[in-house]
């Protein structure tokens, strides 16, 4: 212990501590924090609202050939609810134990990914690397409740078209083995509402 924490880990834990739990995610704090991190990484930050109070935070890093289709790195900012009584540590504390395990709602799904994109680009920019294609990071709301008020609406907006996305990355799953899971498609969504009236 007592070893100095990597700043990327510190940023990750800060992000976990912002309570973006459905059904009342704190998008105001989240957006303000992402703006600071995005600007610190040298990105251009723009906030687009799909609906009032539903912000999509876009952090852009222009490429050397901005006319080419862009790389879209997507993540969602909201997380699912918790039953705190079943947790070893407070779910929004980002508690780190002696083995370096960081506990918190959103550590896997998927605040890790959003901040990893940002930290990776920040590091490469500091190394002086440039990219041919423009990179856009999108931090979208409401994925966990189906995305109707988030990504589904955002892709219809002129602000989305303007991004000129040609290829995208989004979340996967953890893998307990030494391998990494990769999802190239997904099942068709067909949600059914079942109403049980009882006797």
């Amino acid at each position: 212990m007592a070893a100095k924490e990597d700043p990327a880990v510190t940023h990750f834990r800060e992000y976990i501590r912002i309570n973006t739990m459905q059904p009342n995610p704190d998008y105001v704090s989240c957006t303000a924090w992402l703006r600071i991190r995005g600007e610190a990484a040298g990105g251009e930050v723009e906030v687009v609202e799909t609906f009032p109070g539903k912000p999509v935070v876009v952090i852009s890093f222009p490429g050397t050939r901005p006319e080419l289709g862009t790389l879209l790195l997507n993540s969602h900012t909201d997380v699912v609810p918790v039953f705190p009584e079943h947790w070893k540590y407070e779910p929004f504390s980002a508690h780190k134990d002696s083995e370096g395990n960081i506990y918190g709602r959103g550590t896997q799904d998927m605040k890790c990914v959003g901040i990893q994109y940002l930290e990776a680009i920040h590091r490469m920019k500091k190394q002086g690397k440039t990219f041919t294609r423009t990179i856009h990071l999108t931090f979208v709301p409401d994925e966990e409740i189906g995305g109707e008020t988030g990504m589904q609406e955002f892709v219809k907006m002129p602000e989305f078209k303007k991004l000129n996305a040609a290829f995208a990355l989004d979340e996967g799953y953890a893998n307990p083995t030494d391998k990494f899971s990769l999802f190239y498609g997904e099942r068709c969504v067909w949600w059914v509402m079942v109403k049980c009236t009882g006797q």
Binding site: T107, Q108, T177, F180, L182
Partner: peptide, 26 residues
């Protein structure tokens, strides 16, 4: 827009939406 789903987490139990969701710092 073609898209891939990838989160770089191996050696990690699948705990999304579960209690005690965690990720190791390394």
């Amino acid at each position: 827009i073609p898209a891939l789903g990838f989160s770089p987490m191996n050696h990690t139990p699948i705990l999304l939406h579960d209690h005690n969701e965690y990720l190791n710092e390394n």
